[in-house]
């Protein structure tokens, strides 16, 4: 049985941007290796925690939405627990309302990003172009 899942995990803030991306990549590969189909992913960047975890007050949040067998979740969570860079994780299965909501949210974010880009482009034309070309 294939199910829809959503997983969020928090990485320690001591990582550099690159290490963080590496870690994300690692978990992406864990999912792909197990034959999961990644529907969507989001990086929330460094975020302040509402309460300290392991004496840290902030962390890198990352979200995966994927379709896979239930056994994949077990493997993924095992990898989370083995990796000391991950401070916290949460995996939830999604019902049809959750899936509909996630899709809506995705489109909303995309629209907002598009609006922000068009607004930001004329203000800072050259730096924006540079980043796009690279």
């Amino acid at each position: 049985m294939l199910n829809h899942y959503e997983t969020v995990f928090i990485m320690t803030p001591v990582l550099s941007e690159e290490q963080m991306k590496e870690t994300v990549k690692k978990f992406e590969n864990v999912l792909l290796d197990k034959g999961a189909e990644i529907v969507h992913q989001e990086n929330w960047g460094l975020r302040k925690l509402e309460y300290p975890i392991a004496k840290k007050t902030s962390g890198f949040y990352h979200l995966f939405e994927f379709v896979a067998e239930g056994s994949v979740v077990k493997e993924l969570e095992l990898q989370y627990r083995r990796d000391e860079k991950v401070m916290r994780y949460l995996t939830v299965s999604m019902d049809k309302h959750a899936i509909a909501y996630a899709e809506k949210r995705r489109n909303l974010r995309k629209e907002r990003a598009a609006v922000a880009e068009t607004e930001a482009a004329p203000v800072a034309e050259q730096p924006a172009e540079n980043t796009n070309n690279e």
């Binding site: 928090i10 925690l49 509402e50 309460y51 975890i53 949040y61 916290r88 949460l90 939830v92």
Partner: peptide
């Protein structure tokens, strides 16, 4: 409760 686990909401403040 899920939000609390992910430190998006505090348990107590």
């Amino acid at each position: 409760k899920r939000a609390r686990h992910l430190a998006l909401l505090p348990f107590v403040t």
